[in-house]
Design a protein around this nucleic acid. Structure first.
Length: 550
RNA sequence: GGCCCGUUGGUGAAGUGGUUCAACACACAUGCCUUUCACGCAUGCAUUCAUGGGUUCAAAUCCCGUACGGGUCACCA
């Protein structure tokens, strides 16, 4: 009885060797310094913010170096998989314009020569690698039941021993070859464990691109490498896939840091070079006076659908995540507003090693700025597509009054520092509703300073009948308001008013507010002159009459 | 509990032994400008880098302890 006999019993159908796979997936022919990264999610639901951050970094690092970025679906835990999990991931990436060079496009389609890119379809490959280990006696079948494992763990806890399957607790490690052979032959259930050559007393040093040098005890746990369903565990799949797919940089959440001793051990056992690792700190959330990891389960803001609903542009989320990803990005962007993010040079050294606190306010600020620099047509398109999903009424109005709305969005937009009325698509309506007669019903007026209705009527009457002319240029238009003020005893010049407020009934700001409020019901609007031009004389008169008759 | 990581203002952070007044951005506050809002401009906002020790002529920057926070110890990834 040899190790090979056992390996053949367990994997009779596996005929390819690891050398065969080595040939099938040769080293990539890429320029010097090219980085190969991957986004490797489990299809267990939506892509959350932390994963999105990672995939932006992965995409960016590969692009900057003319490398490759690919998508690999890690579906080795079939219990957790959700319906349309893969499609969800693919569309999330698409929405954020994270293009993949290789990988899964759907359950059935993919691009690239290093596939399959869905782990459940790589079963034979993993098994070939496991068989190799078995043949060398570096892995063994384990027949321990969950109950037995629980017992030893309890015992370890009680005796304050280190927890895990190692040393004298690794009971199946010492089962005789023929016993194992016979038990399997008899149909007993088993899994495969690594026969760890590690020594807990010795140290391994790993260089992490984010965390720097980390020193651990060697791994001496006989970890599970193949589950009873024949699929590998994460650790083993990571080894096989990232080696065969020739990944140069593994960028992932820092919950993986503590598995590093296992991973480097695995690579070493096969004589492969491990990839470079970059472990990202989680995005945190403030809760009371403590911070905790932003949670997919508990925090709605972890999901991208949350921002989609708020109407925060995906580009703004991207920008925000980049400020977290590279600490010098924000300054660079501020100085290079005209450039694309592609021109920014990503640097692993500039990744913060402690977890950033998620700041919605900052995201909104970025969003507000981003929207302010968009063209009116783009704002229109984006608001429309948001409204088509979330606000029917708005969507209909936008479609009906396309040119009118675009002109509205253009007010005070094309200047060095544009207006910043819109923080997101969902707040657009609140800022423009009064420009549509359909919504301008049952309005309330708050005239602020001038409250006497007769006086207000007087101002409006005089303004519309004597002064306002649709054809006036802006200067003329404004001068006429000044004349109106002079005629009625309001200060047309703010300086004069401030020097002698008692000489006047009020000032030009108060009078302007009356006109503004009667037309829009709001005291906060973009440039009134532009607004009036858009409304047109008929509508202006209608609105004034509507107030007067009220 | 074991192992690993982190800790600079309300927030993101720059800064790794000696010129940085501890940049910059967001938020906040005040003032100016302005027909409103927004924009813009100006000013203010950590004498101090979690904390206690040590090394050094010199530390936010190096070392040790403490506290706090995070991660991980599955046939989950």
């Amino acid at each position: 009885m040899t190790h090979k006999d056992l390996a053949d019993l367990i994997f009779p159908h596996i005929t390819k060797t690891i050398e065969d796979y080595e040939k099938m997936y040769p080293e990539r022919n890429l320029p010097e310094g090219a980085i190969v990264t991957r986004f490797a999610p489990s299809p267990t639901g939506f892509v959350h913010m932390g994963s999105l951050l990672a995939s932006f970094i992965e995409r960016k690092a590969a692009k900057d170096t003319n490398g490759v970025f690919y998508l690999r679906i890690e579906d080795t835990d079939q219990k957790r998989e959700v319906e349309n999990g893969i499609e969800g991931i693919v569309t999330d990436l698409k929405n954020f314009k994270i293009d993949i060079d290789e990988g899964a496009l759907s359950r059935t389609e993919s691009i690239g020569n290093y596939g399959p890119y869905i782990q459940s379809e790589r079963k034979e490959i993993y098994q070939a690698f496991i068989k190799h280990l078995l043949e060398l006696g570096l892995a063994y079948p384990c027949f321990c039941t969950a109950e037995m494992l629980d017992e030893t763990r309890e015992m370890q806890e009680a005796t304050k021993a280190r927890i895990g399957y190692y040393g004298r607790y690794a009971v199946c490690r010492n089962i005789k070859l023929e016993d194992a052979y016979n038990r399997i032959k008899n149909g007993e259930k088993y899994i495969i464990r690594l026969k760890s050559p590690g020594d807990f007393e010795k140290k391994v040093v790993v260089q992490d691109a984010v965390k720097g040098k980390i020193e651990f005890p060697e791994n001496d746990l006989d970890i599970v490498i193949m589950k009873s369903d024949g699929l590998p565990t994460y650790h083993f799949a990571h080894l096989v896939d990232d080696h065969l797919m020739r990944t140069t940089h593994v960028i992932r959440g820092d919950e993986w840091v503590s598995s590093l001793p296992i991973h480097v051990q695995l690579f070493k056992m096969f004589g492969f070079n491990p990839p470079k690792y970059a472990h990202l700190s989680p995005i945190m959330k403030q809760e009371g006076d403590t911070k905790r990891k932003l949670s997919k389960r508990k925090d709605p803001e972890a999901a991208m659908s949350y921002y989609a609903k708020l109407g925060i542009p995906t580009e703004a989320v991207h920008l925000y995540l980049m400020t977290i990803a590279n600490t010098n990005f924000e300054q660079w962007y501020d100085q290079n507003k005209d450039k694309s993010i592609d021109d920014f040079k990503f640097d692993f050294k500039k990744i913060s090693s402690s977890g950033a606190l998620f700041d919605l306010e900052k995201l909104i600020n970025i969003s507000r700025n981003y929207i302010s620099y968009l063209k009116a047509e783009d704002v229109y398109d984006k608001v429309l597509s948001w409204a088509q999903v979330y606000d029917n009424e708005l969507s209909e109005l936008l479609s009906k009054y396309k040119e009118y709305t675009i002109s509205l969005f253009g007010i005070e937009r094309y200047q060095k520092k544009p207006r910043k009325d819109f923080e997101s698509w969902s707040t657009v309506k609140d800022n423009i509703w009064y420009m549509y007669d359909e919504l301008f019903t049952n309005v309330t007026y708050d005239f602020q300073k001038i409250t006497d209705k007769e006086e207000i009527k007087n101002i409006l009457d005089l303004y519309i009948n004597k002064y306002y002319n649709e054809l006036d240029e802006k200067d003329t238009w404004f001068n006429k308001i000044k004349e109106l003020c002079d005629e009625l005893g309001y200060a047309s010049n703010m300086k004069d008013y401030k020097e002698n407020p008692n000489n006047y009934k009020g000032n030009i700001a108060d009078v302007s507010t009356v006109i503004r409020v009667v037309l829009t019901s709001s005291s906060m609007t973009p440039d009134l002159y532009e607004l009036m031009k858009l409304l047109g004389i008929i509508r202006i008169k209608e609105r004034i009459n509507k107030f007067i008759e009220n």
